[in-house]
C-alpha cells in the first residue's frame, strides 16, 4: 500500500492493512512508551480508531507506516501527560508488567544486549523514543523527525545524548562500555 497505491483503499481497508502490516510494530512501540500491556491494548484501539477517522487526511506525503506511527506516538504522549497515568505510575511498576517468562529467560540469557535494551527502556522518554524508533522500528532519523514532529537536528542531538546517557550507565557498571561504543 505504500507510495503509489495507497489512494485505492477505503478507510476500512486501510485499517485492516495497517493492522496486518504494522499492528505488531505499533503495539511494541506503544508498549515502550507506556510499559503496560493493558494500557498498550487500550491505546492501540484508540490509534486504530484515529486512523479510521483520519484516513481521508492521509495525503501520501509521508510513508503510511510513519503516518500511523505518528498517530500512535502522539496518543502515547497524550496518555503519559494525562492525570490517569500520573496516578497509575505511583502504583505500577514496569518490572511487574513484563512478560512473566522474562525473569527465567533472563537468567538463561543474561546478555549484555539485554542489559543495554533494559537501559534504553529506562531512558527519559525523549531519548528512549529515538533509540526505540531507530533500533526496534528500523526508522531513519528523517522518518523519526516526521513521526514525532520534531526537527531533524533535534533528533540527531537526542540520539547523541541518548548514547551519552547509556555510556554513563555503562560507567556506573552493569554494561560493558565496549558494547555501546561498538
Amino acid at each position: 500500500m505504500s507510495g503509489h497505491t495507497q489512494t485505492h483503499y477505503t478507510r476500512e481497508e486501510a485499517v485492516e492493512y495497517i493492522m496486518d502490516q504494522y499492528g505488531e510494530s505499533l503495539k511494541r512501540t506503544i508498549f515502550t512508551y507506556v510499559k503496560n500491556h493493558h494500557t498498550t491494548d487500550d491505546i492501540f484501539q484508540d490509534v486504530l480508531l484515529q486512523i479510521y477517522r483520519k484516513w481521508d487526511r492521509f495525503n501520501g506525503d509521508s510513508q503510511l507506516k510513519t503516518w500511523a506511527m505518528r498517530i500512535a506516538i502522539n496518543r502515547c504522549k497524550d496518555y503519559l501527560r494525562s492525570p490517569i497515568h500520573r496516578i497509575k505510575i505511583a502504583t505500577d511498576k514496569w518490572r511487574e508488567q513484563k512478560d512473566p517468562n522474562y525473569t527465567e529467560q533472563k537468567v538463561v540469557q543474561k546478555e549484555q544486549w539485554d542489559e543495554i535494551a533494559e537501559a534504553i527502556l529506562h531512558l527519559p522518554i525523549k531519548y528512549r523514543e529515538v533509540m526505540i524508533l531507530t533500533f526496534q522500528q528500523d526508522m531513519t532519523q528523517k522518518q523519526i523527525a516526521e513521526a514525532t514532529g520534531t526537527p531533524l537536528s533535534t533528533i540527531k542531538t537526542r540520539m547523541q545524548r541518548a548514547r551519552q546517557l547509556l555510556r554513563e550507565k555503562a560507567d556506573e557498571g552493569g554494561i560493558d562500555p565496549w558494547i555501546i561504543n561498538k
Binding site: T32, F44, D99, Y102, Q105, E111, I116, L121, F135
Partner: peptide
C-alpha cells in the same frame, strides 16, 4: 551498537509472544 542485537534484546524485554492478536 549492533542494530540487530539491540532490536532483538528490546523485543525480548517487551515480550517474546506477539502483542498483536486477532483479539485486537
Amino acid at each position: 551498537m549492533d542494530h540487530q542485537q539491540i532490536k532483538e534484546a528490546i523485543n525480548r524485554q517487551i515480550g517474546e509472544d506477539p502483542l498483536f492478536t486477532d483479539k485486537d
